[in-house]
Amino acid sequence: MSFDHDTVTGFAKSFGLFYLIAMSIGVIVYAYWPANRKQFDHAAHSIISDDEDRPCP
């Protein structure tokens, strides 16, 4: 296989498209996966709680 302009173009136009679609689906599934909800809520709330400003022992 020669590494010329057409090869690179072909690769970008095929593989590039599919991996981006796959990634988008992956991200949306992860974000909306019901079991993840709890940890997301926890993360969002934990930064604004002021109880103590020190590392966990």
Binding site: S24, Y30, F40, D41, H45, I47, I48
Partner: peptide, 20 residues
């Protein structure tokens, strides 16, 4: 969020926009 004292409106949205 810290200054406003309110959690980010949509945490999911922040993840999706990150990867986007």
């Amino acid at each position: 969020p810290k200054r406003a004292g309110r959690p980010i409106y949509s945490y999911r949205m922040s993840i999706i926009s990150f990867w986007g």
